[in-house]
Design a protein around this nucleic acid. Structure first.
Lengths: 340, 340
DNA sequence: GGCGGACAGGCAAACGATTGCGTTTAATTT
DNA sequence: AAATTAAACGCAATCGTTTGCCTGTCCGCC
């Protein structure tokens, strides 16, 4: 039943040594053609399959990459994860996954777990409540490379893939400015996030290049919960110079913000216009979608991150070379929705 | 650097044998207290961590469960997967995942891969285009138990977790009947799916118990694509006895159907009413959500499936006991949306 | 005094595959 | 004919941990 054939069995049946079998199956040069044939013949007859566990153990490698994400059920991350799975499947890597549920503690535990499981490398999008990065730093000692994507920590010497949120924000701003808006607010995400900082940069640069003066009151942060978003909206709507348009951290936040605005009897696209990020497919179905969305290409990000990691893993010579850090920025793009 | 401490090292430094160290770390009875202390002391000093690969290899177990899903980016599956991850995390299992993208061929390849990776067991929601189940049958020979959930094949002798779609459909139907609808149509999913068959059962039972006569023309299938749904709608709307309400396979299909209805100038909730399944959070944001949705509890399904699998895996005695097949049905529930 | 048994620990095989280094045989060169 | 060499394969160690079985030692008890 569960007694799978091994290399040693094959060897015995053919009266040769296990090493020969192994080499034959790997098409090693120093094995004669007829032996190779006999081995392969028998192997396929017996339905032989190499025991990956034995190989992993022997090679001190698992051909497994760990993925740590905040929430698998969020469309952006599941799209990215889908890409990661697809890409590593192509590269013969397996994928182990854990979700931090945006908790730093959980994130640490998962990392611990991944380390125990001896993953070869990690792809991470950090939890929004993560404040310190030492648990990632420690991985360097274990020779486990980490590639961050989208939610990347703002520290030097890391591998990462991210979308250029600065230019993305500039595109969004220019679109709004062109439409005639002059007082534009922003609901930003947690300030620790690099992506949040980039949004502010883009916001300011767009204003400057127009030129308009920058009013810090027009930028407020949300913790990305519904309540946080409502508080942010409250703040923005209570300003003397009330914004006629808002750039909002992502589509989820935007939908909450829009609902809040409607509850305050504001007319969407008349009294107030929304632009958002990450262009969820669900925007197609919603009643009042943002008029435009900065596409963040989750699939591409996931794919690129995986490719970088695999590259990193295959180029390992073991000796202490000077490490170079890969980063890849995918250019963002503004998707303008047709609001029929 | 990457030279992690091993049991043998610890043994050497303490001048005892590796077996003693192993047993000490496992709190084995036959090891003296002071030796245990010394071992643990040194182990934590050296930051010893057992090499899981070695253990997996030695125990012929991986403590890994494989998960095969159609699409990770679908809310239902990512919620279920989230539960699977959470639950197996608690049970000290790792999760390997693959998505079939609803292709039978891809499904087969993933299974092959999981087999190679020696997963201990599998949790599967089958691809909608899967027609034969031999690739699952084969796994029995390898002693890899499979627990199906939600999308389960309609064959005997399997472990599965599913939502009771029959009673769920009856609840939906009764709700519509109570609201006064007399001609109720159904857009069903692929007929192969057990879940589709159950929906039809519930549909018919609800009619009979009312009693109303059953008109087969009122049930049409969609392949779950937008086009398929539109064809289904076309069929239903061209009937002489036009339905005033529709029970639709899931929320995605419902949203497509509703859009189609609107494009035909039908007024939602006046000319035609929709009831759907699986109560996606996004329904809260959409313009015209179905008035009610049969909640399928993806989280609970995922959790239960994982629990069953873990139970199955820990109860393995190895001898050929008569297998018993676990199945678990979570009762569905009708969520009525407030359409303000 | 001899015996049983509890206690503490060691030996060595086993899990399955890979790989550096040797060994044999036969062919080729000088 | 002797020497060199290439081809084809075997030996044995190795990866790190677990575990069945054995060996002492010490104690208590009849």
């Amino acid at each position: 039943m569960s007694n799978l054939p091994t290399i040693t069995e094959i060897a015995k049946k053919l009266n040769i040594s296990p090493s020969t079998v192994s080499r034959a199956l790997h098409d090693h040069q120093s094995i004669g053609l007829r032996t190779k044939m006999r081995v392969r013949q028998l192997a396929s007859e017996l339905n032989y399959e190499p025991n990956q566990n034995a190989i992993f153990f022997q090679q001190r490698k698992t051909f497994t990459i760990g993925v740590i994400l905040p929430e698998l059920s969020e469309a952006f991350f599941s799209a990215a994860f889908s890409a990661i799975e697809d890409t590593s499947y192509k590269c013969k890597y397996s994928v182990l996954v854990g979700q931090s549920h945006d908790s730093e503690e959980r994130e640490k535990k998962i990392i611990e777990n991944m380390k125990l499981n001896r993953v070869d490398g990690l792809i991470v999008s950090i939890a929004k409540h993560t404040t310190s990065y030492e648990h990632f730093e420690r991985l360097k000692k274990y020779d486990i490379p980490v590639v961050f994507f989208d939610r990347i920590p703002n520290i030097p010497n890391i591998h990462y893939v991210a979308c250029n949120m600065e230019t993305g924000t500039m595109k969004a701003m220019k679109f709004l400015l062109k439409s005639g808006h002059r007082v534009i607010g922003m609901i930003n995400g947690p300030e620790k996030l690099y992506a949040s900082q980039q949004r502010v940069e883009g916001y300011i640069k767009a204003l400057r290049s127009h030129p308009l003066k920058y009013d810090p009151n027009l930028i407020v942060s949300s913790d990305l919960t519904r309540e946080g978003t409502e508080r942010a909206m409250e703040q923005l709507l209570s300003l003397k110079r009330k914004p006629t348009a808002l750039v909002v951290f992502n589509d989820y936040v935007a939908l909450d913000a829009i609902q809040y605005a409607r509850s305050k009897k504001l007319k969407i696209n008349e009294d107030i216009t929304f632009v958002s990020y990450s262009n969820l497919p669900m925007s197609n179905y919603t009643a009042f979608p943002p008029v435009a969305s900065v596409e963040q290409f989750p699939y591409q990000q996931g794919q690129k991150a995986t490719e970088i990691l695999v590259e990193l893993l295959s180029n390992r010579t073991g000796n202490a070379e000077t490490p170079t850090y890969n980063n890849f920025t995918v250019e963002s793009q503004l998707a303008i929705h047709d609001c029929r």
